[in-house]
Write a protein that binds this DNA or RNA. Structure first.
Lengths: 148, 148
DNA sequence: CTAAAATACATTGTATACAATTTAATTACA
DNA sequence: TGTAATTAAATTGTATACAATGTATTTTAG
């Protein structure tokens, strides 16, 4: 099986695989912290964006998170059901949906303040390693966006 | 909104987000190449493991790919339906499922030989950058596994 | 030797992801 | 102005992911 000819297809020679596995593993690290508030990782990053930038349209959130309406629509409805979010039609243009964090959603922000450092300590990377990884990931993302 | 107090929760201060986004984006790059053979990214990495290591049990594949039976069972059935894979009970221990690549599956391996370099060129990373990224990702994965 | 524990896979239920299509609202233009 | 083109969400359909449970098989203890 392990013929030289197929070296390019060895799992350990792929960059994609550790990327895929690491991303899954990191979101798994978040689970116990987020379970306490009844939210998922994707719901969490949606809140991160809305906490930081304030009310915005679904499309803008989609651009920030690189997610489309097919993913976001049901996810945002769940956040609304849980009381963290308000979804309302934009009176200026009723095609748009304005997303804004509720009072309960802002209360959650206070609790969430503790999460990043707890996750950070799971990863056990030096500040320098984390920064290198961060920049390489964004560089890769931007490279892919350009070539598209 | 953008108060100093909440800096730790800024989307751009998260390491998890570019990781999550990059992984999704890279699997998207695979899609056009894999669509031609009617397989998905996860099905592709399952084949990578089976091409490289030969027949194995579902559990071993799950360990290599960090996936459980809930994900693998339906995925492997689809690969079998498409004719790339053979699923059979192990006569030695009928709890185990032996997974082996079919003739058609090995024919696909020849075609797949072209994929890694085509993906590589989408990422536009130098050999050094790719290697650094690779090592940091595996380091992070291993760190998380240890702390668990 | 047999009942209980353990094991491996399958199934169920929930939540993404995303392509493709549909629907409602707005804009553009003939 | 009235209709065609465009736009933004929502919906539909398929494929992961994964926790929790179920089921068949094997192993282990007594």
């Amino acid at each position: 099986m392990k013929e030289e000819r197929y070296k390019a297809l060895y799992l350990e020679n792929q960059l994609c695989f550790p990327l895929y596995a690491c991303a899954k593993e990191v979101t798994r690290q978040y689970r116990p912290f987020l379970d306490r508030y009844g939210i998922t990782y994707t719901q969490y990053i949606a809140l991160l964006a809305l906490w930081e930038y304030g009310p915005m349209h679904l499309e803008d959130l989609g651009e920030k998170l690189m997610l489309d309406s097919g993913t976001l629509t049901p996810l945002l409805k769940k956040l609304e059901e849980k009381g963290y979010l308000i979804r309302e039609k934009d009176p200026e243009d009723k095609r748009n949906l304005i997303l804004s964090v509720s009072e309960k959603g802002f209360a959650l922000r206070e609790e969430a303040l503790l999460i990043p450092s707890q996750i950070g300590s799971c990863l056990h990377l030096s500040k320098e390693e984390a920064l290198t990884l961060y920049h390489l990931l964004y560089k890769t993302i931007n490279n892919m966006k350009e070539s598209a």
